[in-house]
Design a protein around this nucleic acid. Sequence first.
RNA 1: GGCGAGAUGGCCGAGAGGCUAGGCAUCGGUCUGCAAAACCGCGUACACCGGUUCGAAUCCGGUUCUCGCCUCCA
Length: 507
Amino acid sequence: MLNLFVYNTLTRQKEKFEPLHPPFTGMYLCGPTVYGDAHLGHARPAITFDIVYRYLTYMGMKVRYVRNITDVGHLTGDSDDGEDKLQKKAKADRLEPMEIAQRYTDSYHFDMDALNVLRPSIEPRATGHIPEQIEMIEKILANGFAYIINGSVYFDTLKYNEVFGYGELSGRNLEEIVSGYRENLEGQDEKRHPADFALWKKADESHLMKWSSPWSTGFPGWHIECSAMSTKYLGEKYDIHGGGLDLIFPHHEAEIAQSNACNHAPGFDHYGEAKYWLHCNMITLEGQKMAKSLGNGINLKELYTGKHPLLEQAYSPMTIRFYILQAHYRSTIDFSNVSLQSAEKALKRITDALKRLREIKGENRLVALNEDMEKNLKTFREDAESFMNDDFNTAKTIARFFEVVPVINQLYADRSGPLAVSAETLMQFSKEFETFFFDILGLKTEEDSAGGESDGMVQGLMNVITSIRSDARKDKNFKVSDFIRDELIKMNIKLKDTPQGTEWIKE
RNA sequence: GGCGAGAUGGCCGAGAGGCUAGGCAUCGGUCUGCAAAACCGCGUACACCGGUUCGAAUCCGGUUCUCGCCUCCA
């Protein structure tokens, strides 16, 4: 039974999540514009809504998750010079725009796979849905909410505002929006009103990506693709629309307006296409907004390898995922070396406990019950679910993991004596722990993600070296044993002498 | 200028009227040839000034500061 509450940007409060057609759930997330490698800012919404997807699935919903690829670049500047991001990049590198789009789509998939972000059910491309976008624009025109000038089509915000009221999602009204435009109005002469936005733009000769339409050879406007694709795959009304906070205005506001203007009779519904609008907050870097102009934009591959002047070391994708999940998705989150290093150690504390849990979970010894420990394990799932039910509070869920870690460690330390919890509880808890760790939070252990880092030969060599060293230590020949350890450390191989033998890790 | 979010112990970061989240670091301990690692233990903090209340970090008013959006942005 679903008992989930989500914060709806539209109403500015938490609401009980009730799918329109349970158990089916439709969810749309604004995906990346593929003109560059994914950066930290792309990781947050992908992970946030990956959690939503995973948790709803865990709760028995049949989720259709649509996340688009924008392969028509939105216009770059504030002027109407017809340049878009993809085209700019393509001209610079003498490539087809589609080559750029393909390259960075692949790159995006690689980075997201590393973060263990599940692929969506459908990943539609904007360029693959030009007819749908044209059709939608035609409907908006037919309903009288758009006008044609010189082969371009603009959304009539004033008219829309009279009928539906523009600005509900972002909490603005038209006068405020206009007052925010200041003097930057040059190049907008075609529009009747400064808040109007393009649905279709006529292309000039130099434009590489263009399609024919009833109005001109041109290309679709910034916002229409999401409305068209969400309508096609999820219907005129679906459950969840997600994105970053910065998309609320103007992108999502425009989407709502387009959908209302296209699909609904005046006054029918002013909430646009989705019932719940969810937005995750932004990521800052060392306290500052990430921006190319500030020179602090870090892409994910740089994080994974540590190759960036601001980074003191490489950070694994799981460290990044874990760090993001340690904060609530509606809070801003600041990335810094110390924070990431802290998260790396914290995650290791859990994965170490997970390894121990796997060793002891099947135990079926004499039981000397410890009530507190038993209760702690038994209520884990119930607690974790209640945290997740409260607007996906992964931070609290993770904190609950840390309440259970000392119990696992104690059970592990005492494994020569009687078991302090019942065997059934231990087995059941072990399953629930793994479900929340792997399936719901989507975390992995570093071994799972390392993937063939060290081949068989390296493993064999290391076994030889560590056994030589073990023998030397037994003979108290510390000169030899310390020499081996010191030389290996120079190659970033760290030795740890545990009671079970010597372990090694490459750093 | 308009709209919005926020200020929590050394750092990060939950919570949201009474039930001292959690992580990292520090410190102490166990273990160890030494080291590293691991494990155990340890912190009553909520920007400032008023008010409401038996009781406020949590509610109300004000002050200061920070950040985001208003133009493409995840």
